[in-house]
Design a protein around this nucleic acid. Sequence first.
DNA 1: TAACTTTACTTGCATTATGCAAGTATTCTG
DNA 2: CAGAATACTTGCATAATGCAAGTAAAGTTA
Lengths: 154, 154
Amino acid sequence: MVSKKEHQAHSHCPLALGLDIVGDHWTLLIVRDLLFGKHEFKEFLESDEGISSNILSDRLARLQAQTVVQWIHHPQSKKRKLYYLTGKGKELIHVVVPLVRWSLKHRQGEVQIPAQRAAALQQGPEQFIRSTLQALAEWESAHGIDAMGTHTRL
Amino acid sequence: MVSKKEHQAHSHCPLALGLDIVGDHWTLLIVRDLLFGKHEFKEFLESDEGISSNILSDRLARLQAQTVVQWIHHPQSKKRKLYYLTGKGKELIHVVVPLVRWSLKHRQGEVQIPAQRAAALQQGPEQFIRSTLQALAEWESAHGIDAMGTHTRL
DNA sequence: TAACTTTACTTGCATTATGCAAGTATTCTG
DNA sequence: CAGAATACTTGCATAATGCAAGTAAAGTTA
């Protein structure tokens, strides 16, 4: 790992404990990619924000250590890995979506979203969450992953 | 300010734009304090996580620049400032609460909450949000602040 | 009213984390 | 078998953070 993050000042506040895991600039962006259909290292690298490979590697390792992310071998390739969110990871959608909505409301001039996702958001947050999780569940069953936690309510 | 944060890779993703504002280790903890009744510099310093004063000062300045936070003079003192959340800031409760709930579910062994807040959470998230915002609205009207945005739905 | 304390900061310096370019070890592809 | 792709790691410069100390204005106490 690139760092130790020694200074976790060990609060028992649930918010602080959550931020220990997702409270940096990159982690939630990786979770976003995983929620919206990306699964490979190179795909995360290609996202607009331009994460560097050492940071990506580090964050994936941390997310695995926290059982937020796991991976399987690519069915067609020994070298490629397919990362995916655990049930715990998928439940972060309930944090991601409100932050997206907050930005849409308060930074609307600067935001751009793929038309398809904008349309899905029109259906309202609950429906958006449902269909996003449904897509993940289908991917999982197509890859032989035991899809526990599809019906996450948090 | 302590830094310039040059490297904001200017994505147009709403999540990334949101994280530009609240995506560091400290900002949401300050927002939490503001949501739950703290208003002064020293009170933020006293929180369990132990933020240092230079970082606190920097984050408060950024939050003001983003119109998430504002302040008034303490009615009994010329030197003291009372910080408070704008409507935009208060709406971050819809991000904070889900992350709190996520931690309560997934890091339950490590979490401790003041009994009063745990009880309030028992009422369900919507009611918890309502009563938290209600308390802020009362503080605001007690301090002559025009309480726009009490009924935030995001 | 002089001395002490409080508040909201700033400054300086050591330590950590990040960004970037390059390198590496497998694995696949033509 | 030569070259490209994938998932990393390494090294080094730069930026952010932690910590201790300092400061200026205001308030409090003797």
